[in-house]
Design a protein around this nucleic acid. Sequence first.
DNA 1: ACAATTTGTTAGGTATGCCTTACAATCATG
DNA 2: CATGATTGTAAGGCATACCTAACAAATTGT
Lengths: 161, 161
Amino acid sequence: MADKNLTAGLEDYLEAIFIAQEENKTVKGIDVARMLNISRASVSEALSKLVSKELITYESYGTISFTPTGLSEAKKVYNIHNTLKLFFQTVLNISPEEASENACKIEHIISDNILSEIKDFTDYCNNHPEIIDNYRQGKDNERNLSNRKIPRPADSDSKSK
Amino acid sequence: MADKNLTAGLEDYLEAIFIAQEENKTVKGIDVARMLNISRASVSEALSKLVSKELITYESYGTISFTPTGLSEAKKVYNIHNTLKLFFQTVLNISPEEASENACKIEHIISDNILSEIKDFTDYCNNHPEIIDNYRQGKDNERNLSNRKIPRPADSDSKSK
DNA sequence: ACAATTTGTTAGGTATGCCTTACAATCATG
DNA sequence: CATGATTGTAAGGCATACCTAACAAATTGT
């Protein structure tokens, strides 16, 4: 019992339970199944594993609760997710949905060191808005130059294969 | 035959073969096994899959070659890897080894859109070195403030467990 | 309170992707 | 050119993680 090693899948369950707890207060297996869009049977298996690893407590038809270790693991994953999402959204100007989807996958595999650098760099960029502003403006200008309405006179074969 | 859908694992094989080809010229199963540090048996299985997907051509004891589709897929993965690695190294100041390890995992799951933003942003940062210089200098100052050489008088237990 | 609905579990199945062992085919060199 | 080393394959196993179907237990509504 209490094997501790978490696969990406189990981390997703912990994260989902954590988020659901913040919203719902009480979380049951079915909630997790709906959130992660997987079968009740798979959730049942996964919850058994989390119980045997002593990360949650849970009895059939009852409410899921974290053990102290489980809560700390869940928060860890959740924070990583948010760090990545924030970077994608605020530095790279990615939509919240796409930022979240990518964070969900990358959160399980990125190294602590890179994550910490991403966090610091994101903070720095958000404290110096001119960096992102200038970058974004540069991109817009570039886009307008290549998509200009009036074609340049000499560029007669711009449409050829 | 020619199913086209590539798992992360198969992408790794294509990438490894591509890299080995650039170095060795001729690549055989054993080379792939050594590069990826997996058994010859597993490589044998994987190569069969790649052959049935028409991404490589290969006969027992012979040399592995890409089909046009396979080469294009391999290059795609390789380029994604390099884009991520470059970002980690040049923007986040991560060591080449760690940058590469993380790129290897993330390259299979990141969205095209985020990747393209990472590429552009990396280029921008490298064209405006003052951004990274200032950022890094800020980090150094912070570090020196908290790690000052002369301990503050009251901090008598700074070496205790 | 009991029937219908919801929720959970079990059993059995699929797919991926790795492993080891044992054997087969090829290669390389004396 | 034979034999020992290398390389490849086949068979059988393991672990993860999902599924459906069938059934069981709990909950809900009237």
